[in-house]
Simulated scan of single mutants.
Amino acid sequence: MENYQLGITDVLRRTPAGRVPFSVEFMPPRDDTAEQRLNRAAATFHDLGASFVSVTYGAGGSTRARTQRVAEQLAQKPLTTLVHLTLVEHTEDELRDILKAYAHAGLSNLLALRGDPPGDPLGEWTPVEGGLRYASELIELVRSIDECAHFDIGIASFPEGHYRASTLEEDTLHTVNKLRAGANYSITQMFFDPEYYLRLRDRIAALDPVQGEKPIIPGLMPITSLRSVRRQVELSGAHLPRELEERLEKAARGDEQANRDDIRKVGIEYSTAMAERLIAEGVPDLHFMTLNFARATQEVLHNLGMAPAWDAAHGQDVLR
């Protein structure tokens, strides 16, 4: 019998009343230096008590081996670890082998994704010969494998709708169908207006009250750079509220590099206010997209009263 990690839905259920947990997303590092940075961030979040950590999945073979290796290393820290898997350039047989390898490594948590086309996230997506077309098919595959019977499966959800969906109602139906196929919860794409999250939650509950009871975890990215947030919006299709963009532009004063600290201050304040609103609305967890850095997320957590301060004298060292 494998020594499996606890499922994320169980982790969330075990959270003490009155406390909102937080979790973080990492990207597979592309070289040893980046891996060392990830390990430092992971140590910080371990000490801060992250409910779980997730590891994204590289398209086109770029980081797939590192994804599994990093996930296994994080699980040994120990950190409850969610590993992403996409359909991109995989046959069904290859997916089956990957899933069994995750199970044999003691992993229990999978984020089932279709994935974006390699090289162009907004381009046309087609499966490889012998591959699967939809995330719901991946969920069904997982549920058909005996070694993966213990898997706690998450999916992506889209507060502003997936860019391929013609309407929000169509997108909501796709999300609900993935939950009906056997997914246990969803993590949203990043967004910058809490209303998008709240309306997504309302739409799912209205369409299927049973599936609406499953956790919808908001995905947040603390804002530290005007250039970076614009790039993330371009890649994700998320909407950057004009009021926020104007505040960031005002802080930049025409020179983002010279005024980066002022931009960061505005961004962290805004991210904190978003998190406060979401906590007040009863979210099950706050999932921070970290880009493998700890500082910005820790600053938001500190503002929420959930972590020590971060500065030259405070941070990881004071935790360890």
Results as ranks from 00 to 15, higher is better:
Gln298Asp: 07
Val142Lys: 00
Met221Cys: 10
Met190Pro: 06
Lys265His: 15
Pro209Asn: 08
Gln73Arg: 11
Ser23Ala: 15
Gln211His: 06
Glu92Ala: 14
Leu99Pro: 06
Arg231Cys: 12
Phe52Met: 05
Glu269Arg: 06
Ile279Phe: 10
Arg277Tyr: 05
Trp125Tyr: 14
Gly315Lys: 01
Tyr196His: 10
Leu278Lys: 03
Pro28Lys: 01
Tyr57Val: 00
Gly282Pro: 08
Gly115Pro: 05
Leu79Ala: 14
Gln211Gly: 05
Arg201Gln: 11
Ala71Asn: 05
Tyr102Gly: 12
Ser166Ala: 15
Arg164Leu: 11
Asp193Phe: 04
Asn184Ile: 00
Ala42Arg: 01
Ser236His: 09
Gln316Ile: 11
Thr290Lys: 07
Thr33Cys: 14
Ile268Met: 08
Leu138Ile: 13
Met289Asn: 04
Glu299Tyr: 14
Glu249Asp: 13
Cys148Thr: 10
Ser166Pro: 03
Glu92Trp: 00
Thr126Asn: 11
Leu244Cys: 09
Leu122Tyr: 13
Gly237His: 03
Leu235Ser: 15
Ala312His: 08
Glu129Ile: 06
Met27Cys: 14
Gly267Gln: 02
Thr290Phe: 13
Ser136Asp: 10
Arg143Ala: 15
Ala135Asp: 00
Leu286Arg: 00
Gln5Cys: 12
Leu248Ile: 06
Arg40Ala: 15
His150Cys: 04
His104Val: 07
Gly60Leu: 08
Glu213Trp: 11
Leu87His: 09
Glu94Leu: 04
Pro159Cys: 14
Asp146His: 11
Ile155Gln: 03
Gly182Lys: 03
Arg227Pro: 01
Pro21Leu: 07
Asn292Phe: 12
Val142Asn: 02
Tyr197Arg: 01
Glu281Val: 12
Trp125Arg: 07
Ala165Arg: 02
Glu169His: 07
Asp208Glu: 03
Leu173Phe: 14
Thr272Ser: 15
Ala103Met: 05
